[in-house]
């Protein structure tokens, strides 16, 4: 996960369940005569775990940071945290935080499917996103046309999850 805080970047993080998920699910022994139960929701969860850097939003954020550099005289290496100072970039940054937050909620929801209401955690962020699109027509165009990976997955996720829930109920 990306962090803009220098101190956090420098100290190796302690592990969370999230960091060992792929080991618990994909490594370890499987014995032929035993049965591995197929796990609903795991594939979706793994996709969710990846925050997509390669998106137009990120590109624009990077370009903005770069445009604030003094290209002729700046000899000191500036990192992103130093560059995110102005009022414009502060709003951009807030957007990124919100996104990360909603993603965490989704992951938590998937890890404990029966303990949370399926629709609740997803609706608020999606509504906000729609408002944002309305406010900024240029960005909304970029989201639908140029963004290669992120949004397609974003839109797929809740659908496939709801399908999953339904299958479970029908059992």
């Amino acid at each position: 996960m990306i962090t803009y805080d220098d101190e956090v970047v420098c100290a190796p993080r302690a592990g969370t369940l999230y960091d060992v998920l792929e080991l618990i699910l994909d490594r370890g022994m499987v014995i032929d005569v035993f049965v591995r139960v197929s796990l609903v929701g795991i594939e979706i969860l793994k996709i969710d775990a990846r925050i997509v850097v390669a998106s137009v939003d990120t590109y624009l954020r990077f370009a903005e940071a770069c445009n604030r550099l003094d290209l002729e005289h700046d000899v000191r290496s500036k990192t992103v945290p130093e560059l995110f100072g102005g009022p414009v970039s502060r709003t951009v940054r807030k957007g990124a935080q919100r996104k990360a937050h909603s993603l965490t909620e989704k992951v938590r929801d998937l890890l404990t499917p029966e303990e949370t209401e399926p629709e609740e955690p997803e609706e608020p962020p999606r509504t906000r996103e729609r408002e944002e699109r309305g406010r900024s027509p240029q960005r909304s165009r970029s989201r639908t046309t140029a963004r290669p990976r992120g949004d397609a997955e974003d839109d797929d996720r809740p659908r496939s999850r709801r399908r999953t829930e339904k299958e479970d109920e029908e059992e």
Binding site: M1, R13, A14, T16, L23, R27, G28, V30, I31, D32
Partner: peptide, 19 residues
């Protein structure tokens, strides 16, 4: 590069998946 270390863990990655 942001590094993170998890462990010590049971050796999930160092057992043959199928005996």
């Amino acid at each position: 590069l942001a590094l993170s270390v998890t462990g010590p863990l049971p050796c999930y990655s160092f057992v043959d998946p199928r005996p």
